[in-house]
Amino acid sequence: MKNIVILISGSGSNMAAIVRAAEQGRWAERLNARVAAVLSNRADAQGLVFAQEHGIPTAVLDHKAFPSREAFDAALMAEIDQQAPDLVVLAGFMRILTPGFVAHYAGRLINIHPSLLPAFPGLNTHQRALDAGCRFAGATVHQVTAELDHGQILAQAVVPILPGDTAATLSARVLSQEHQIYPRAVAAWISDFSQSVA
């Protein structure tokens, strides 16, 4: 069984979309894959409740309890590695990861970013797209590398920017697309991985 570990910091809506897709698409039977665990750096992350309700093991590592970013990432790696992960999925995990962490999971660490990369890496993507006068925005699933929001693009969704859009209205439309492309990209990654090691 191929193990997927998902990291969240908040509501975990993308994690929930992946879990639902795994259930409805019968990933365990079709892809020999499962969401093995959901981890968070915040004990109050609402997504933990969803994961528990779906029978998925959860764990919390509070980054504030560690003396450095490196110490937190080392503890997080130890927690993740208990699941023997084939894929680590960042789903609203609001931490910049150390180069050592990224290197440890090189080629099996993916993220979703709320812009059409390479445009607007980093934060405040929707407001920046509006301020730049863009006609389109969107979301990107990408491999994680040591350079923020710069890894190989795995999937994208394009959303038109409408007259009168605010960062909030644009964010909501982009998020609905994230919930569609992220589960598809995870399933495609697992399927491609299975073929490459077959």
Rank of each mutant, 00 (worst) to 15 (best):
N3E: 12
N3W: 02
I4M: 13
S9E: 13
G25M: 12
L31M: 12
L31Y: 10
R34D: 12
V35L: 10
A36Q: 10
V38N: 03
A43L: 08
D44W: 07
A45S: 10
P57T: 01
L61Y: 05
D62G: 00
H63Q: 08
R69H: 13
E70D: 14
M77Y: 00
A84W: 00
P85V: 03
V88E: 08
V89G: 01
F93A: 04
I96S: 11
F101W: 06
G107S: 03
R108V: 02
N111C: 05
N111S: 13
H113V: 04
L116T: 12
P121K: 08
L123I: 14
R128G: 03
A129Q: 06
A129R: 02
L130S: 04
A132S: 15
C134S: 11
H142V: 10
H142G: 10
Q143D: 13
Q143Y: 15
T145P: 02
T145H: 07
D149P: 04
A157P: 11
V158A: 00
V159A: 01
V159M: 00
L162S: 01
S171Y: 12
S176M: 07
E178T: 02
E178W: 04
H179I: 02
Q180I: 15
Y182N: 06
W189N: 14
I190S: 05
F193Q: 05
V197A: 15
